[in-house]
Each structure stands twice: as structure tokens, then as C-alpha cells.
């Protein structure tokens, strides 16, 4: 099973890298934007995906129907060279599944809908509108872009881990040791990290820049992940949120997370 899965990831990863399954927010096929192995990638750069406020909606119900599916996680971790450690002490993760009671720690309710209680929602960096990690960073190695993405500059990070103490969602990971030997399938389109810096999900800024949707969104074939511009009333994500009940993690802290969870 593992081999099958690995094989699949490789194929899916390569396919997505080559832009074969890419669609931009307008729903247009952008698969021809980047030719595999092309020398001139400028054409992709000329049609980037842009937004005033990027947001992600996770349909817990749709996602839970594929309870053991890890396609989005695998795709993300593959394209971003996220290492896989045997020792949990060294763990690095950009997207992961967490039991509902941990993911929504503040939603304490023993008699919650059974399927919800047993669900394992996907967790990301929330790309908060008011990100506490950004306030505490002493070098501005992490900051909020105008389109709402909370970015990381791995060249500048000094590894003080103040952002990890400041993040109320446990979304950040630290490179406790050199990650290179623990990356099974190195993707040369994306850098690895060096030991001693913090990393996390960046909503695939590098893919948006060439007109591609985030790798996780692309990898999900049940449409449980919807990504788009929250300021655009016509965007899929906005429509979805308008018509469904959604929750966010720890709304009481006032951080304004941009990852929404649809409860159907």
C-alpha cells in the first residue's frame, strides 16, 4: 500500500509541477503556462493568481468521506521538500490532520455530532489577518503580505522560535537538525531549508506567482479544499462561505484566521 501511495504521490507531484492539472481562479485551464523543463518560465509569471485577501475553505464533510486520504498532505510535503523524520521530536509539518477535539480545542462538547467528533480536520497555517507570529518576530523574517499571505524569509530567520511561542494554532515547525537527508524525493524547483530556521505553509506563494493553485487544493479530487479571494464576491470561496455554516479556530483570540471550516 505504501509503495502504491508513494508512486501515486510521485506521479501526482510531477504532474502538478508540470502544471498539467492546473486551473486558475477563473476556472481557466492554465496547464500550458509552464512547460516541463522549459527554459523560459516567464509566460507563467505573466499570469499570476492575485487576490486582495486569500482564504481557504475546508469542507470537513467532504474531506471526512475520504478519512484516510492524505493526498493534499503528500502533495504539499512533496513540492515543498518537507522532510519526513522517524523521531517525532524532529517533526516538521505544513498540513496535517488532527482529531477534532484538538483542532477545535475551544469547541468542548462531548455530545457533538458523532461524525464531527470523530473527524480529523486538516490544519494549516491560518494566515491570520492579525498574525501574532508577525508581531513577535524580532527580525521581520515573517510578515503579512498585502494579499494576506503570512510569509517566511528563510534567509533572515535567526531561529529564536518566538513565533512558535506566539502562534495559537501550533502551525509552525522548526528545523531541529539538517532536513536534507530526510527528504525522500527532492524537488529542485523549491529550496529545502537549513537547520535552525522556522517554516510553515505559505499558501503556495510560489505557485500562485505562476498562475497555479496551491498544491493541496490541486491534489484534492473531492473538492474539499476551496481557495480564492475573499474580497471578491464572485469567488468560489466567498460563495461557499455565504451559503454554508463555517467555523474558524479560536476566533476569540481576535487573530482573524483565513482558513474556514465548513460544517455540513
Amino acid at each position: 500500500m505504501t509503495i502504491d501511495r508513494r508512486k501515486f504521490i510521485k506521479t501526482a507531484g510531477l504532474a502538478s509541477l508540470a502544471g498539467l492539472v492546473g486551473k486558475n481562479v477563473l476556472g481557466q485551464d492554465v496547464s500550458d503556462v509552464i512547460e516541463p523543463g522549459s527554459f523560459d518560465r516567464l509566460s507563467g509569471l505573466q499570469s499570476p493568481l492575485q487576490a486582495r485577501r486569500w482564504a481557504m475553505a475546508v469542507d470537513i464533510g467532504k474531506c471526512e468521506k475520504q478519512h484516510d486520504c492524505t493526498k493534499c498532505i503528500d502533495a504539499c510535503h512533496l513540492v515543498h521538500n518537507v522532510p519526513k523524520f522517524d523521531n517525532p521530536k524532529d517533526e516538521i509539518k505544513w498540513i496535517w490532520k488532527e482529531p477534532f477535539e484538538h483542532a477545535f480545542h475551544e469547541q468542548e462538547n462531548e455530545f457533538q455530532k458523532t461524525d464531527l467528533i470523530h473527524s480529523t480536520p486538516l490544519l494549516f497555517c491560518n494566515h491570520c489577518d492579525i498574525p501574532p507570529c508577525v508581531s513577535v518576530c524580532p527580525t521581520r523574517a515573517t510578515w503579512k503580505r498585502e494579499d494576506g499571505i503570512v510569509m517566511m524569509d528563510w534567509h533572515r530567520c535567526i531561529g529564536c522560535r518566538y513565533c512558535m511561542a506566539g502562534c495559537p494554532y501550533g502551525s509552525r515547525s522548526f528545523n531541529w537538525r539538517d532536513p536534507r537527508p530526510f527528504i525522500e524525493d527532492q524537488q529542485k524547483d523549491f529550496p529545502t531549508r537549513m537547520r535552525g530556521v522556522v517554516e510553515k505553509c505559505t499558501f503556495c506563494d510560489e505557485r500562485l506567482a505562476v498562475g497555479l493553485l496551491p498544491a493541496c487544493v490541486e491534489a484534492c479530487d473531492v473538492g474539499a479544499l476551496v481557495f480564492g479571494d475573499l474580497e471578491d464576491p464572485e469567488s468560489n470561496v466567498r460563495k461557499l462561505l455565504n451559503n454554508n455554516f463555517s467555523i474558524r479556530r479560536k476566533p476569540g483570540l481576535g487573530t482573524q484566521p483565513e482558513v474556514y471550516y465548513i460544517i455540513s
Binding site: 508581531s135 524580532p138 527580525t139 531561529g159 529564536c160 518566538y162 537547520r195 535552525g196 530556521v197 522556522v198
Partner: peptide, 25 residues
């Protein structure tokens, strides 16, 4: 305690008054 101790000067090269660590130093 720093992951990248040689980059500590970044605290002063890119001063960030938002961060208490800047004020503490």
C-alpha cells in the same frame, strides 16, 4: 538558544519595534 546564532545581528539590522525581543535586547 538560537537556531542560526550567526544571524543575531539581524535583530539590529532589521529593527522591529513590534517585537518585545527587540526591546529586551
Amino acid at each position: 538558544d538560537m537556531g542560526q546564532p550567526l544571524r543575531i545581528p539581524n535583530i539590529f539590522l532589521f529593527p522591529s519595534p513590534n517585537s518585545l525581543m527587540f526591546w529586551d535586547s
